[in-house]
């Protein structure tokens, strides 16, 4: 075949497209799951949380979280009724084994379950130097542990303290909102086991999700709203003392 300069110039882009096609791999995600149809968050009802620690245990078993590290945890607040600055917070073993009896008469007290807020404008993904952490197309902040360097920038950047360095893999780790479960139509492990329904997975793009009715009819707040992180962990009954 006699390749003229004209033919070569026509063939080169075609060859480039073909080569891209060879390099690209077929996507592996679940067959019946379309990420564009979902926008995940969570609803946490402080007025229902009993501090049993079921969520913490379930998260550790589901996601093989090392002992003494937590993707979700429960905090107990004891607040003087007249001042937000006079408070004590404890979370023995992340609340995994429940809490010792609360001393009476020291102010108001309540439990606050915490986890990654899956911010839409997350500070942690912005600082990653290699693109190992990201907001997925369905609104979940994830870590690519094969690509993470373990530089810990994201751990410092998270204003909610939701990240840690896995001591075994030496990569950043955090709540994945049980991405492997919500892809299959299941709820997260923590929401599955919560006995009082204090935690509910919310799909903000699904008009049939009861979260919309709840958000319309309740005074709901996110943590540290002044940081404008676009947090999607919505708290009902959140006291002003909670940080």
């Amino acid at each position: 075949m006699n390749v003229t300069r004209r033919k070569l110039l026509i063939l080169l882009p075609a060859a480039a497209v073909a080569w891209e096609y060879v390099l690209a791999r077929a996507p592996e995600s679940s067959p019946n799951y379309n990420a564009a149809e979902h926008w995940w968050g969570m609803l946490l009802d402080i007025t229902k949380c009993i501090g049993c620690g079921s969520c913490v245990r379930a998260c550790q078993l589901e996601n093989h979280v090392p002992d003494a590290y937590y993707r979700t945890w429960v905090e107990r607040y004891i607040v003087q009724e007249w001042g937000f600055e006079h408070l004590s917070v404890d979370s023995p073993n992340g609340g995994k084994d429940g809490f010792p009896a609360t001393p009476d008469g020291e102010g108001k007290s309540f439990f606050v379950p915490k986890l990654c807020n899956h911010c839409a404008d997350s500070p942690c993904t912005q600082v990653c130097p290699v693109g190992a952490t990201f907001v997925s197309p369905d609104g979940v902040v994830l870590v690519d542990k094969k690509y993470c360097l373990g530089c810990r920038y994201c751990i410092q950047a998270c204003p909610y303290g939701c990240r840690f360095l896995n001591p075994e893999t030496h990569t950043a780790e955090k709540c994945s909102l049980c991405y492997h479960r919500i892809n299959k139509g299941l709820t997260t492990a923590c929401c599955e086991v919560c006995p009082t329904g204090a935690r509910q997975l919310a799909d903000l793009k699904d008009p049939a999700d009861p979260v919309h009715e709840f958000l319309k009819t309740h005074s709901v707040q996110v943590l540290k709203p002044h940081l404008a992180t676009g947090a999607k962990a919505f708290y009902n009954g959140l006291d002003g003392s909670v940080r």
């Binding site: 996507p27 592996e28 995600s29 693109g131 990201f134 994830l142 690509y147 991405y179 492997h180 892809n183």
Partner: peptide, 11 residues
Amino acid sequence: HYRGAALGEIA
């Protein structure tokens, strides 16, 4: 700005 295949691996 991330590895697209990571989504499938996590799922």
